[in-house]
């Protein structure tokens, strides 16, 4: 288990998830749905943007289990920001697993690793794999 750090604000209330996108297509044969084109997902003060987001429904097709963003994902939550190739947002558990060249920017510091698990309820980010931290020592104006 790599280091964990605070990410965004902790907020465990079940706020609604709002999604904006250019289009949403629902496959009538197997029922999969995909948002495409400037997809923005907002919940509370967490904003996720990506070009494509696949919707995974719950077992009984009654709700959304996961939102899989791909094609370059940016997440902003409060003061912190994170970027990665893909992000898997498990809506029920309020957890986002970012993978593929993940970098987290907090103020002057950037931390990169292979995989980061952000817990929106507790406001923490758990790093995994090779972690590299670049600390900005004094500000040289």
């Amino acid at each position: 288990q790599g280091p964990s750090l605070a990410f965004g604000s902790s907020d465990n209330s079940d706020k609604p998830v709002e999604v904006d996108a250019d289009s949403l297509s629902v496959n009538q044969k197997d029922g999969t749905a995909e948002f495409s084109g400037n997809v923005r997902i907002v919940q509370g003060d967490m904003k996720l943007s990506a070009p494509r987001v696949l919707v995974e429904y719950t077992e009984d097709q009654s709700g959304v289990e996961r939102l899989e963003a791909s094609g370059g994902v940016t997440i902003v939550s409060g003061e912190d920001a994170a970027e990665s190739e893909t992000a898997d947002y498990r809506v029920q558990d309020r957890v986002i697993v970012m993978s593929g060249a993940v970098t987290i920017v907090q103020g002057p510091n950037t931390i990169s690793s292979d995989k980061v698990t952000i817990n929106l309820a507790t406001g923490t980010a758990q790093m995994e794999g090779r972690v590299r931290t670049v600390l900005q020592s004094g500000q040289s104006e």
Partner: peptide, 20 residues
């Protein structure tokens, strides 16, 4: 290819997560 239902020209969706 499969039959697709496509919502076009800008989509705004709200999803209420089931109470945890």
């Amino acid at each position: 290819d499969d039959v697709q239902l496509v919502f076009t020209d800008g989509v705004k969706l709200v999803y209420e997560p089931q109470r945890s």
